[in-house]
Design a protein around this nucleic acid. Structure first.
Length: 113
DNA sequence: CTCGTGACTCCCG
DNA sequence: TCGGGAGCCACGA
């Protein structure tokens, strides 16, 4: 039996599809995307995907943050840009620059409890 | 070809 | 409690 075509893509391609599915006004974590793409520990590859794909495709790379709910970028590296973009979508950061996961964390439609 | 690094995350001592 | 190392995959020098 052949695998489904949607599963034939590489991690890179799958990650792109996942990121594109992030709804506006929501954020996701690297590990989350990596897990959805097939490798729960491939968070680093997600980073590579964002850097590469964001330049060609209109990926919501700014909706991807780390496990802490914080923007991992360094000042001058897109950190302010990401925060500004999220803020423009309605995402709010607290004084520590943390996002409220209870309100903005993207919940993938995997299954109903 | 080999080595190192990267917007990360998890596990173990 | 806190720190360090390993894991994941890709790409540049």
């Amino acid at each position: 039996m052949k695998k489904s075509p949607s599963q034939e893509n590489s991690f890179h391609q799958r990650a792109v599809q996942v990121v594109k599915k992030i709804p506006r006004g929501r954020v996701a974590t690297y590990g989350q995307i990596a897990a959805l793409a097939g490798s729960p520990r491939a968070a680093r590859q997600v980073v590579r995907v964002l850097n590469t794909a964001s330049e060609k495709e209109k990926l919501p790379w700014h909706r991807v943050i780390n496990r802490e709910g914080r923007v991992v970028l360094k000042p001058g590296r897109g950190y302010e840009l990401q925060k500004a973009l999220l803020k423009d979508e309605g995402v709010v950061f607290d004084d520590n620059g943390l996002v409220d996961f209870d309100r903005f964390l993207w919940k993938p439609r995997t299954r109903k409890p």
